[in-house]
Amino acid sequence: MLAVTDLVVRYGQTTALHGVSFAVNRGEVVALVGPNGAGKTTALKAIVGLVTPASGSIEFDGATIVKHKPENLLRRGISLVPEGRHIFASLTVVENLALGAATRADRRAAKKDVAAFLDRFPALGRRRRSQAGKLSGGEQQQLAIARALIAQPELLMLDEPSLGLAPLVVDQIFGVVSELRDAGTTVLLVEQNATRAVELADRSYVLRTGEIVLEGDSQTVLNHEDFLASYLGVAAGAPGAPVASGVPAASGEVTA
Protein backbone atom coordinates (compact mmCIF):
# COMPACT_ATOMS: atom_id res chain seq x y z
CA MET A 1 0.00 0.00 0.00
CA LEU A 2 2.85 2.37 0.90
CA ALA A 3 6.14 2.02 -0.95
CA VAL A 4 9.08 4.27 -0.21
CA THR A 5 12.01 3.80 -2.57
CA ASP A 6 15.52 5.28 -2.39
CA LEU A 7 14.29 8.23 -0.40
CA VAL A 8 16.85 11.02 0.07
CA VAL A 9 16.02 13.99 2.28
CA ARG A 10 18.36 16.87 3.02
CA TYR A 11 18.15 19.73 5.47
CA GLY A 12 20.42 22.29 3.87
CA GLN A 13 23.88 20.72 3.90
CA THR A 14 23.05 17.75 6.10
CA THR A 15 21.53 14.64 4.61
CA ALA A 16 19.02 13.08 6.97
CA LEU A 17 18.06 10.11 4.78
CA HIS A 18 20.51 8.52 2.34
CA GLY A 19 18.34 6.47 0.02
CA VAL A 20 15.90 4.70 2.31
CA SER A 21 13.44 2.07 1.07
CA PHE A 22 10.63 0.47 2.97
CA ALA A 23 7.08 -0.68 2.41
CA VAL A 24 3.87 -1.22 4.30
CA ASN A 25 1.27 -3.67 3.04
CA ARG A 26 -2.43 -3.43 3.75
CA GLY A 27 -3.36 -4.86 7.13
CA GLU A 28 0.20 -4.96 8.42
CA VAL A 29 1.76 -3.34 11.42
CA VAL A 30 5.26 -2.24 10.45
CA ALA A 31 7.76 -0.87 12.95
CA LEU A 32 10.40 1.65 11.97
CA VAL A 33 12.86 1.87 14.79
CA GLY A 34 16.23 3.44 15.34
CA PRO A 35 18.22 5.58 17.73
CA ASN A 36 18.01 9.32 18.20
CA GLY A 37 18.51 11.32 15.04
CA ALA A 38 18.29 8.28 12.77
CA GLY A 39 15.81 10.00 10.49
CA LYS A 40 12.57 8.31 11.52
CA THR A 41 10.58 11.49 11.89
CA THR A 42 12.09 12.81 8.68
CA ALA A 43 10.82 9.75 6.82
CA LEU A 44 7.29 10.30 8.14
CA LYS A 45 7.43 14.00 7.34
CA ALA A 46 8.43 13.17 3.78
CA ILE A 47 5.48 10.79 3.46
CA VAL A 48 2.96 13.40 4.62
CA GLY A 49 4.51 16.15 2.52
CA LEU A 50 5.95 18.26 5.33
CA VAL A 51 9.44 17.98 3.83
CA THR A 52 10.23 17.61 0.15
CA PRO A 53 12.57 14.75 -0.74
CA ALA A 54 15.70 15.49 -2.75
CA SER A 55 15.13 12.27 -4.66
CA GLY A 56 13.39 8.94 -4.44
CA SER A 57 9.79 7.96 -4.77
CA ILE A 58 6.89 7.58 -2.38
CA GLU A 59 3.88 5.70 -3.66
CA PHE A 60 0.56 5.14 -2.00
CA ASP A 61 -1.85 2.68 -3.57
CA GLY A 62 0.33 2.69 -6.66
CA ALA A 63 0.32 6.47 -7.25
CA THR A 64 3.10 8.88 -6.41
CA ILE A 65 2.42 11.18 -3.47
CA VAL A 66 5.63 13.20 -3.56
CA LYS A 67 4.91 16.94 -3.47
CA HIS A 68 1.34 16.46 -2.31
CA LYS A 69 0.14 18.79 0.43
CA PRO A 70 -0.30 17.38 3.94
CA GLU A 71 -3.99 18.29 4.01
CA ASN A 72 -4.59 16.36 0.80
CA LEU A 73 -2.68 13.31 1.97
CA LEU A 74 -5.08 12.98 4.87
CA ARG A 75 -7.88 12.95 2.32
CA ARG A 76 -6.00 10.24 0.43
CA GLY A 77 -6.05 8.12 3.58
CA ILE A 78 -2.77 8.76 5.40
CA SER A 79 -2.98 10.04 8.95
CA LEU A 80 0.03 10.93 11.07
CA VAL A 81 0.10 11.20 14.84
CA PRO A 82 3.09 13.51 15.12
CA GLU A 83 5.97 13.20 17.55
CA GLY A 84 5.19 15.11 20.71
CA ARG A 85 1.43 14.59 20.21
CA HIS A 86 0.60 18.13 19.12
CA ILE A 87 -2.94 18.14 20.31
CA PHE A 88 -4.57 21.57 20.15
CA ALA A 89 -4.09 22.62 23.74
CA SER A 90 -6.47 25.58 23.72
CA LEU A 91 -9.32 23.57 22.20
CA THR A 92 -11.49 21.16 24.11
CA VAL A 93 -11.24 17.39 23.77
CA VAL A 94 -14.43 17.33 21.72
CA GLU A 95 -13.19 20.12 19.47
CA ASN A 96 -9.94 18.24 18.85
CA LEU A 97 -11.94 15.21 17.80
CA ALA A 98 -14.33 17.28 15.69
CA LEU A 99 -11.33 18.63 13.80
CA GLY A 100 -10.16 15.13 13.12
CA ALA A 101 -13.60 14.35 11.72
CA ALA A 102 -13.83 17.51 9.62
CA THR A 103 -12.70 15.82 6.42
CA ARG A 104 -15.37 13.15 6.63
CA ALA A 105 -18.02 13.44 3.95
CA ASP A 106 -20.83 12.08 6.08
CA ARG A 107 -21.21 14.70 8.82
CA ARG A 108 -23.74 12.71 10.81
CA ALA A 109 -21.63 9.57 10.90
CA ALA A 110 -18.63 11.70 11.86
CA LYS A 111 -20.55 13.15 14.77
CA LYS A 112 -21.56 9.70 15.91
CA ASP A 113 -17.93 8.65 15.78
CA VAL A 114 -16.89 11.51 18.04
CA ALA A 115 -19.28 10.12 20.62
CA ALA A 116 -18.03 6.59 19.97
CA PHE A 117 -14.42 7.60 20.54
CA LEU A 118 -15.34 9.32 23.78
CA ASP A 119 -16.74 5.95 24.90
CA ARG A 120 -13.79 4.00 23.61
CA PHE A 121 -11.32 6.20 25.49
CA PRO A 122 -13.11 6.75 28.80
CA ALA A 123 -10.41 9.11 30.06
CA LEU A 124 -11.29 11.42 27.17
CA GLY A 125 -15.01 10.95 27.67
CA ARG A 126 -14.78 12.09 31.25
CA ARG A 127 -13.00 15.26 30.21
CA ARG A 128 -14.71 16.02 26.95
CA ARG A 129 -15.23 19.69 27.75
CA SER A 130 -11.76 20.29 29.21
CA GLN A 131 -9.09 22.10 27.32
CA ALA A 132 -6.86 19.46 25.82
CA GLY A 133 -3.78 21.18 27.25
CA LYS A 134 -4.97 20.27 30.74
CA LEU A 135 -4.94 16.52 30.06
CA SER A 136 -2.11 14.30 31.25
CA GLY A 137 0.53 13.16 28.77
CA GLY A 138 -1.06 9.76 28.32
CA GLU A 139 -4.50 11.26 27.82
CA GLN A 140 -3.08 13.68 25.28
CA GLN A 141 -1.51 10.79 23.40
CA GLN A 142 -4.85 8.96 23.41
CA LEU A 143 -6.48 12.11 22.11
CA ALA A 144 -3.87 12.46 19.36
CA ILE A 145 -4.44 8.86 18.29
CA ALA A 146 -8.22 9.21 18.46
CA ARG A 147 -8.07 12.44 16.47
CA ALA A 148 -6.09 10.66 13.74
CA LEU A 149 -8.32 7.58 13.73
CA ILE A 150 -11.55 9.50 13.48
CA ALA A 151 -10.54 10.63 9.99
CA GLN A 152 -10.78 6.92 9.10
CA PRO A 153 -7.33 6.64 7.55
CA GLU A 154 -6.25 3.65 5.52
CA LEU A 155 -2.77 4.00 6.94
CA LEU A 156 -2.11 5.25 10.46
CA MET A 157 1.41 6.45 11.22
CA LEU A 158 2.46 6.91 14.82
CA ASP A 159 5.64 8.83 15.65
CA GLU A 160 6.99 7.74 19.04
CA PRO A 161 3.64 7.46 20.80
CA SER A 162 5.33 6.29 24.02
CA LEU A 163 7.72 9.23 24.21
CA GLY A 164 7.92 10.82 27.63
CA LEU A 165 5.18 8.71 29.19
CA ALA A 166 5.30 6.80 32.47
CA PRO A 167 5.80 3.00 32.08
CA LEU A 168 2.21 2.20 32.98
CA VAL A 169 0.93 4.70 30.46
CA VAL A 170 3.30 3.30 27.84
CA ASP A 171 1.65 -0.09 28.40
CA GLN A 172 -1.69 1.54 27.79
CA ILE A 173 -0.58 3.14 24.54
CA PHE A 174 0.95 -0.11 23.27
CA GLY A 175 -2.32 -1.72 24.26
CA VAL A 176 -4.17 0.68 21.98
CA VAL A 177 -1.80 -0.12 19.12
CA SER A 178 -2.23 -3.86 19.53
CA GLU A 179 -6.01 -3.39 19.54
CA LEU A 180 -5.62 -1.54 16.27
CA ARG A 181 -3.52 -4.39 14.90
CA ASP A 182 -6.13 -6.93 15.93
CA ALA A 183 -8.79 -4.84 14.21
CA GLY A 184 -6.79 -5.03 10.98
CA THR A 185 -5.72 -1.38 10.86
CA THR A 186 -2.61 -0.73 8.79
CA VAL A 187 -0.05 0.92 11.03
CA LEU A 188 3.44 2.32 10.57
CA LEU A 189 4.85 2.57 14.06
CA VAL A 190 7.94 4.65 14.74
CA GLU A 191 9.55 4.06 18.11
CA GLN A 192 12.73 4.45 20.10
CA ASN A 193 11.23 1.91 22.44
CA ALA A 194 12.42 -0.56 19.83
CA THR A 195 12.00 -3.97 21.37
CA ARG A 196 8.36 -3.47 22.23
CA ALA A 197 7.57 -1.94 18.88
CA VAL A 198 9.25 -4.77 16.97
CA GLU A 199 7.55 -7.38 19.14
CA LEU A 200 4.22 -5.86 18.32
CA ALA A 201 4.86 -5.45 14.60
CA ASP A 202 4.57 -7.95 11.78
CA ARG A 203 7.67 -6.62 10.10
CA SER A 204 10.34 -4.15 11.14
CA TYR A 205 12.99 -1.86 9.77
CA VAL A 206 15.95 -0.54 11.73
CA LEU A 207 17.12 2.88 10.67
CA ARG A 208 20.49 4.28 11.71
CA THR A 209 22.00 7.60 10.61
CA GLY A 210 19.73 7.82 7.63
CA GLU A 211 20.10 4.26 6.35
CA ILE A 212 18.12 1.07 6.80
CA VAL A 213 20.58 -1.30 8.45
CA LEU A 214 18.24 -4.17 9.15
CA GLU A 215 14.88 -5.31 7.98
CA GLY A 216 12.72 -8.38 8.09
CA ASP A 217 9.90 -10.06 9.91
CA SER A 218 9.95 -9.18 13.54
CA GLN A 219 11.37 -12.49 14.85
CA THR A 220 14.34 -12.22 12.52
CA VAL A 221 15.00 -8.64 13.48
CA LEU A 222 14.65 -9.29 17.19
CA ASN A 223 17.16 -12.13 17.04
CA HIS A 224 19.68 -10.35 14.89
CA GLU A 225 22.83 -9.20 16.65
CA ASP A 226 22.81 -5.93 14.75
CA PHE A 227 19.49 -5.10 16.31
CA LEU A 228 21.04 -5.37 19.74
CA ALA A 229 24.11 -3.54 18.58
CA SER A 230 21.90 -0.67 17.42
CA TYR A 231 20.46 -0.47 20.87
CA LEU A 232 23.44 -1.13 23.03
CA GLY A 233 22.58 0.59 26.23
CA VAL A 234 19.15 1.52 24.94
CA ALA A 235 17.13 -1.64 24.53
CA ALA A 236 19.61 -4.51 24.82
CA GLY A 237 19.57 -4.32 28.57
CA ALA A 238 15.89 -3.65 28.83
CA PRO A 239 13.75 -6.35 30.39
CA GLY A 240 12.35 -8.69 27.79
CA ALA A 241 15.10 -8.03 25.28
CA PRO A 242 16.05 -11.29 23.58
CA VAL A 243 19.52 -12.71 23.80
CA ALA A 244 21.61 -12.29 20.66
CA SER A 245 21.31 -15.36 18.51
CA GLY A 246 24.80 -15.01 17.13
CA VAL A 247 23.79 -14.96 13.48
CA PRO A 248 26.79 -13.56 11.65
CA ALA A 249 26.15 -10.59 9.39
CA ALA A 250 29.33 -9.34 7.84
CA SER A 251 27.66 -6.72 5.71
CA GLY A 252 25.51 -5.46 8.53
CA GLU A 253 22.51 -5.77 6.30
CA VAL A 254 19.97 -8.53 6.13
CA THR A 255 17.11 -8.61 3.71
CA ALA A 256 14.24 -10.87 4.48
Binding site: K69, L74, R75, H86, F88, L99, A151
Partner: peptide, 10 residues
Amino acid sequence: EDFTTARLVG
Protein backbone atom coordinates in the same frame (compact mmCIF):
# COMPACT_ATOMS: atom_id res chain seq x y z
CA GLU B 1 -2.51 27.45 17.53
CA ASP B 2 -0.45 25.10 15.37
CA PHE B 3 -0.64 25.46 11.63
CA THR B 4 1.40 22.41 10.71
CA THR B 5 -0.63 20.06 12.85
CA ALA B 6 -3.82 21.66 11.59
CA ARG B 7 -2.78 20.70 8.07
CA LEU B 8 -2.07 17.17 9.28
CA VAL B 9 -5.67 16.87 10.41
CA GLY B 10 -6.84 18.09 7.03
